[in-house]
Amino acid sequence: MTEAIKLKAKDYKSEVKPIWCPGCGHFSVLNAITKAMAGLGINKDNTVLVSGIGCSSRLPAYVDSYGFHGVHGRGLAIAQGLKVARPDLTVLALGGDGDGFSIGGNHFIHACRRNVNMTYIAMDNEVYGMTKGQASPTTPMDWDHSKLTPHGPGVRPFKPAALALASGAPWIARGYSGNPNQMAKLIAEAVAHPGFSFLHVMSQCITFCPEQTDWKAIVTEHEGPALANADEAAKVFLHEDGFQTGLLYCEPRPSWPPVSDKPVDGNALAGLAASFRV
């Protein structure tokens, strides 16, 4: 009888070395993902990481599993399609705040609403890192470091947790790149949650937002159990500072697609397809 070999976090890393800037928070997310995979004893061959475009979206290349580096903002669409077609796989989608809340914002709200059994990790550095430091939907109103927005973007930033809640996400947590061990635990819990799990990670961009190193002093850990009531959670998410970490909200509901005992009529489907043929 062969004994199963227990893999360590480093065994889940690929041979490809990250080209992120030293100190980039995305390294921490990579470490947290591989630690979670080792903690769960996840089978690499049954795991797929799907991303869009951005520094953050390079992450699937650095994990020794299946991966898909998709189109900007479309990681969630691809990941949901994959999970519905192959429910046996563990599917994680990931990307940056630009990818997920700007060009991919529509996919984000509908993924929360649809509740496919998968995990989405948004690596939020409040900036477009890859294209060298432009404002994103989570950039503070007065952030004036970019020549494109010399007086700050002047637009109120999104509150991703509030947006996710309003769109129907049943599981919402927040991590911080300064604490990869807590993040690993959250990822393990997110994967185990039977529905759409949204992990918002504050992941510093050391190059274009060096002031984000101050986050360390302001992050706090959510105390007590996760909120299980959307009304209460709404009050918290609308008024919090966005630096509370941990599992913040969990109110499970049936995931999509619905289970039905009504058989699918193959002929009707074939007929429908035929009617579109020209």
Partner: peptide
């Protein structure tokens, strides 16, 4: 069980720059 978020000898990401 570490005194801080990461193991004590691990370089913190906040202290880095290229």
């Amino acid at each position: 069980d570490w005194p801080e978020a990461e193991a004590p000898e691990t370089s913190s990401y906040e202290a880095l720059h290229y």
